[in-house]
Amino acid sequence: MKILLINNGKGWSGGQEHLKDLAMELRKNGVEVHFLVREDTVNETRFAELGFTVHLMPYKYGWNSAKAFFRLVATLRRERFDIVSINREHDLALTVLAYRCAFPFASPGRLMMSYHLPTDHYQLFLSAVDAIVCISEHVQTKLLRILPAMADRTSILYYGIALPPPPDVTKFSSDRPRRYLKGRPFPVIGMVGEFWKNQIELVEMLPQLKQAFPEITVAFVGNNADRNLVDPLEFRARELGVEDNVVFTGLVPREKIQDVFYDLDLSVTTHRNEGFGIVHLESLAAGTPVVAYNEGGFVDLFKGEDVGVLIENGMTDFAAAIVSLLKDDTHRYAMGVKGFELVQRRYSTQAMGRSYLNFYKQLLEN
């Protein structure tokens, strides 16, 4: 089986990590995986360093749009992939048109679209693909609201992550030394992700949290280079008098992210429209329970599982749930153990690879 994964993004984030892990698992199962990425980006370098064949696309602007189109047509005709998988909405129209131009009469394989983000936008060319993969029920539900006729071509396949070792016994001790957030006393909670994900609500909760735990630390983990997003959070923390309880870590190297989750007593997200959220898998795998609103793709993780708390209402209830869990060591530690077991059982990269491979085989058979 020969597959082309298309992602014309300029940066490296959770979506690229997912494609990397998926491609490596598929390769272990004998699949020949190629990538089509934007030239002169980190994606070109990273995927090539991992030993994958990388085809390059110029940034689609002006004359480059035509150049990208004809280059893609030539690549499709030359390689004749069994599966061509589009992984960004922005690449849908160009890929569909190029695919139909390359194979106007009989296709050598199947064309599919993977949706990683919830969307309310009507996609004109989506009906031209043979199958759609959504990464959560949340993403699928939003998509089918605008394109209900695509229901029979839509499936859900979940992310997976490389499993770390089981949580160390020291993880379940409130006075453990912190590995990354050194010197911070109990409790330490954190939100991992880009700074457009509604972090302001967590800042607003801090006075309520501080009443219960005066030394509480809230760590915001992520690239804080965009001051237009970070400055309002810092300003509001100063207004509320909680600036000493807030830490902005900046971008954490991938090899250190497990140390961050080891340090956190709770992982928190106030984002309501997450497609899925690899960081939540990483948190659970580290033995750190999650507190989140009952909205978004990560809700799928919690179905029938006692690995965190989902909040139905607003910030007051959210803060109360955090306080309640921080006061209940026994329940919090039990959640941590169950979180690791859940990821081990259902969300490993091996499980993800098997799911996608079976899906590809069924798609080709049909």
Score class of each variant (00 low, 15 high):
175 D>H: 08
179 R>Y: 01
172 F>G: 10
197 K>N: 15
146 I>N: 08
142 K>R: 14
128 A>F: 02
177 P>I: 01
194 E>F: 06
168 D>L: 08
130 D>S: 12
140 Q>D: 08
135 I>P: 04
197 K>A: 13
184 R>W: 01
134 C>Q: 02
134 C>G: 03
173 S>G: 15
127 S>M: 05
190 G>K: 05
195 F>C: 09
140 Q>M: 14
163 L>W: 03
180 Y>Q: 15
156 I>K: 01
169 V>L: 13
191 M>I: 09
196 W>S: 11
139 V>G: 14
134 C>K: 00
133 V>M: 00
182 K>W: 02
196 W>C: 12
181 L>S: 11
185 P>K: 10
144 L>M: 06
135 I>W: 10
149 A>D: 15
156 I>L: 04
163 L>T: 10
134 C>P: 02
178 R>W: 07
196 W>D: 15
154 T>M: 13
193 G>F: 05
158 Y>R: 02
154 T>F: 12
181 L>P: 08
166 P>Y: 12
193 G>H: 05
134 C>D: 01
184 R>Y: 00
178 R>P: 10
197 K>C: 11
132 I>P: 09
186 F>D: 02
140 Q>L: 11
190 G>T: 09
168 D>C: 06
156 I>P: 01
157 L>D: 04
166 P>L: 13
192 V>S: 08
146 I>D: 04
197 K>I: 10
128 A>V: 01
175 D>C: 09
163 L>P: 07
154 T>L: 10
197 K>D: 11
176 R>D: 05
183 G>I: 12
163 L>F: 04
135 I>F: 12
161 I>M: 12
178 R>V: 05
170 T>M: 08
185 P>E: 13
149 A>L: 14
133 V>Q: 00
166 P>R: 12
197 K>G: 11
143 L>C: 08
188 V>W: 05
132 I>K: 03
146 I>A: 08
188 V>A: 06
155 S>W: 11
196 W>N: 15
173 S>P: 07
192 V>T: 06
143 L>Y: 05
185 P>C: 10
196 W>H: 14
193 G>P: 02
196 W>R: 08
157 L>T: 01
143 L>A: 13
152 D>C: 02
145 R>K: 12
180 Y>H: 15
158 Y>M: 02
162 A>F: 11
141 T>N: 06
131 A>Q: 00
126 L>H: 13
166 P>Q: 12
159 Y>G: 04
167 P>Y: 13
144 L>D: 00
191 M>R: 09
157 L>R: 07
153 R>Y: 04
186 F>H: 06
146 I>L: 06
188 V>M: 07
170 T>I: 07
183 G>C: 14
129 V>Y: 00
181 L>T: 13
184 R>I: 00
173 S>E: 09
195 F>N: 09
186 F>S: 03
